[in-house]
């Protein structure tokens, strides 16, 4: 597997300018993907307050799409609509349609439990369960009945940890609590946990904001590898990060989707003045 001797390179990448980073990301960007997720006129209300206004966007399969924008712009809110995490908030109401592979996920027939098995999510702060590393990974497959305990489960755990680039670091201590890992390892554990249920889509809500630069670099590298198999949507505060990991970017501002474009093009030649202002650091 591609291990993380590239850490140093990634670390220096942090210091490069936005433009250079965007250019290097664009260099590896594959082209011509079909649409995986298609949102039409999605609005979100928290009680009386509207947090998102008529967002329509198509998200391509097996690419990394980054949502950027100043805090409170609605990018996390929209992300949480894609696996219906907003359902767990009582006062939250969603209108419009979001289709994955053509099926509307807000259709009453859709079971959010199944939806979330297909649309995994990784959160801002690493949140491993207070269980062993093994049980953290096995949790999803177990509840969905994908695998019984035993060699089949061991395989899933190993595969997931390998794909998350964590296997070599933890293979000797699978029975130790996941909370004992370092922050970066915990976040990769959470990614492995999401991978274990074999999702199509992985949503990442500022996955590196609680990590130090070295851990961040590892996670970013991992994201780049994961896009071979999964459609990834990542919310990020850091434009450098968006430039490094994403092929497409969407800019949100005050609950509106302002523009969607190839990351490289948006960063070099934004169409909207607000995007321009944000990227050049005039607000945010």
């Amino acid at each position: 597997m591609a291990s993380f001797e590239t850490t140093m390179e990634a670390g220096t990448a942090m210091n490069e300018t936005v433009k250079d980073a965007a250019a290097s990301a664009a260099a590896v960007m594959p082209v011509g993907h079909e649409t995986k997720i298609s949102a039409t006129k999605v609005s979100v209300f928290y009680g009386e307050k509207q947090a998102l206004f008529d967002v329509s966007i198509d998200i391509p399969a097996r690419q990394v799409m980054a949502f950027i924008g100043p805090s409170g712009c609605g990018k996390s809110t929209f992300l949480r609509c894609i696996n219906r995490m907003n359902d767990t908030i009582d006062i939250c109401r969603v209108t419009g349609t979001i289709a994955i592979d053509g099926a509307d996920i807000y259709d009453p027939k859709i079971d959010p439990v199944l939806l979330r098995a297909r649309v995994g999510m990784v959160f801002q702060k690493p949140n491993p369960f207070p269980k062993s590393i093994y049980d953290n990974i096995a949790y999803g497959p177990r509840i969905h009945g994908v695998a019984k305990a035993g060699s089949q489960m061991d395989e899933i755990v190993e595969t997931s940890l390998r794909r998350a680039g964590l296997w070599n670091e933890v293979k000797d201590r699978l029975r130790e609590p996941g909370t004992g890992l370092s922050g970066g390892q915990q976040q990769r554990l959470c990614i492995a946990r999401a991978i274990a249920v074999n999702p199509d889509v992985i949503l990442m809500d500022e996955p590196c904001s609680a990590l130090d630069p070295i851990a961040t670099a590892k996670v970013e590298e991992l994201i780049d590898e994961l896009r071979e198999r999964y459609t990834i949507v990542i919310v990020t505060h850091s434009m450098q990060q968006a430039a490094r990991v994403s092929q497409k970017a969407a800019f949100f501002h005050l609950g509106n989707l302002i523009e969607v474009d190839e990351t490289e093009r948006m960063f070099t030649n934004p169409r909207d003045q607000r995007t321009q202002d944000y990227i050049t650091g005039r607000f945010g």
Binding site: N83, T88, R116, A117, P128, F129, I143, C190, L203
Partner: peptide, 21 residues
Amino acid sequence: QSMRDGAYALGATKAETVRQV
């Protein structure tokens, strides 16, 4: 709350979240 989020995001039902997490 992050524990709940983690479990729900994996597709756990409420009962599973309660019992196992």
